[in-house]
């Protein structure tokens, strides 16, 4: 169990370091890096690398945005198997629904209960 936490730690940490390097050393903006990570996740899922990686590192790969992409790829694949070609359209967002809905709902609630504070140095 502790090994799993440790694996999640270093694999997840490395995903973040790679993103930091892309932001600091290239002209890529953070938004572009995030897009790259999601698409990378879909790609890893498509070529069958995501699942073994997930079995090894757990949250180390599912918590970074790569996991969002990985979940979309798996969702699409499974939906195609159960529902046929319509799964192409239904699978992705179904798999991403928890993250998206949680962000939307908590975002809305936060907007009701809090307000932006001025930036400080």
């Amino acid at each position: 169990m502790l090994v799993d936490v440790l694996n999640a730690f270093w694999v997840g940490g490395l995903f973040c370091v790679l993103a930091q390097l892309l932001i600091d050393l290239t002209k890529l903006t953070p938004a572009r890096v995030l897009v790259f990570y999601v698409v990378l996740g879909v790609f890893l899922g498509a070529v069958g690398v995501y699942e073994p990686l997930y079995d090894f590192a757990g949250c180390g790969v599912s918590v970074p945005l790569v996991g969002f992409g990985g979940a979309i790829a798996r969702g699409v694949r499974e939906a195609i198997h159960t529902d046929g070609a319509i799964g192409i359209l239904s699978g992705g967002l179904t798999a991403a629904s928890v993250g998206t809905t949680a962000a939307l709902v908590f975002g809305y609630l936060a907007a009701i209960f809090f307000k932006s504070k001025p930036k400080r140095m």
Binding site: G12, C16, V17, A19, L65, A103, A110
Partner: peptide, 22 residues
């Protein structure tokens, strides 16, 4: 930096912060 941006926390922040702001 990317330590909070890349995990799903960064995605959440990028949804919540414009919500608060607007």
């Amino acid at each position: 930096g990317a330590g909070t941006l890349v995990p799903v926390t960064g995605f959440a922040n990028s949804v919540v912060s414009p919500a608060l702001d607007t």
